[in-house]
Design a protein around this nucleic acid. Sequence first.
DNA 1: TAGATTGTTAATCGATTAACAATC
DNA 2: TAGATTGTTAATCGATTAACAATC
Lengths: 224, 224
Amino acid sequence: MERSSQKVSMAVVRRLPKYYRYLEDLLHKEIYRISSKELSKIMGLTASQIRQDLNCFGGFGQQGYGYNVEELHKEIGKILGLTKRYKTVIVGAGNIGQAIANYSHFEQKGFELKGIFDINPKLIGLKIRDVEIYDVDYLEDFVKENNIEIGVICVPREKAQETAEKLVAGGVRGIWNFAPHDIKIPENIVLENVHLSESLYTLTYLLNEKLQEGTDNLENIELD
Amino acid sequence: MERSSQKVSMAVVRRLPKYYRYLEDLLHKEIYRISSKELSKIMGLTASQIRQDLNCFGGFGQQGYGYNVEELHKEIGKILGLTKRYKTVIVGAGNIGQAIANYSHFEQKGFELKGIFDINPKLIGLKIRDVEIYDVDYLEDFVKENNIEIGVICVPREKAQETAEKLVAGGVRGIWNFAPHDIKIPENIVLENVHLSESLYTLTYLLNEKLQEGTDNLENIELD
DNA sequence: TAGATTGTTAATCGATTAACAATC
DNA sequence: TAGATTGTTAATCGATTAACAATC
């Protein structure tokens, strides 16, 4: 049941939230037991991969029975660190910053939004869901004084690096970055990027690849 | 220079927007020539990987010289389909829907926002950046009549599947999905997901892994 | 021409899948 | 007990890295 000291690959880590989500679904449907085979069907993975993934963290299953959905959900929640609470700030109260601030689901999952920061004097002093918008000049001190653990960067590209540096100087342990820029921070700080335009451009690539496929198939036929 | 008919792996595809972004940066810095080695340093990839990646699409470089930044940027833009225009709708005018609608950068890159859809009567008739919010009942017909190619799903989890089906029935070719749900659509439609909570949970996982590392190292020392 | 750097093949590494003994 | 299904090892597959001949 102990986490092995072998480092878990990012490929596995990025599947964990997906397991978590599907297990939550199953609980809502009042399904309390599932085999890797059944789970593989609904998730679109192989049963083998599911068993491999879960065994990075311990033997959660039982031979001849499968997995206890409730227990597995709870365990993965623990592994993801969702049993803890995280003091959080959002920097940048523009479109995305506001959207994240308003998204109350995260609050429910243990993310305590303690402050929002912006450079725009018109916004400073306003509140989003009872959370005040402060002047970004106050960011580093605020992070220090309130033991903020996670900083969410929603500022424009050009301000991303300096914002990250203020957050790090203040002592955050992790940064969730929405700016389309690759931030440089010390290795001991966790960085997770959400690069929306990269996602959108992947979509348009695939859109055009689909178009291309017709041509390719013709080529293939000619070659036969 | 022709795109090889060999299918390009998703690993490569997802790096393309990143190349595109870095090349744009270089252009702004008035750097017009770069070797795979130099590019590898600033992007944090290996030079070998860069050359492999680019060669999936053609020989853009020149031996002894490197790559022409302007040309390569243009070519990757073409490959990503960014020379075209895409008629787009957003479904769901909540937090994320509004944020995307307000984000004018996408408009500049050729994404023409033709309509926003919501179920809330209070929102219907309002405009975001000159784009009207319509009743979601009108979605399928609107998509048909306006030849919409991309649908952005920003509705709650429970409405995601039915929204996708309306978009597909209307004839979109691609869906950009922000709902935390795995949508099922026909194979010929492109689906790109942005699962924000999965990204956030990956962050918290890594945050706790870092904590763990201390312990692991101690264990390792003991074992030595 | 000599030096630099690509395009491309071969070697390595890591992740996924298959297989099966262990066991509930 | 017999059937089912895990945990885990081995085989396969794919992606990354290394190496180097081709060539600008």
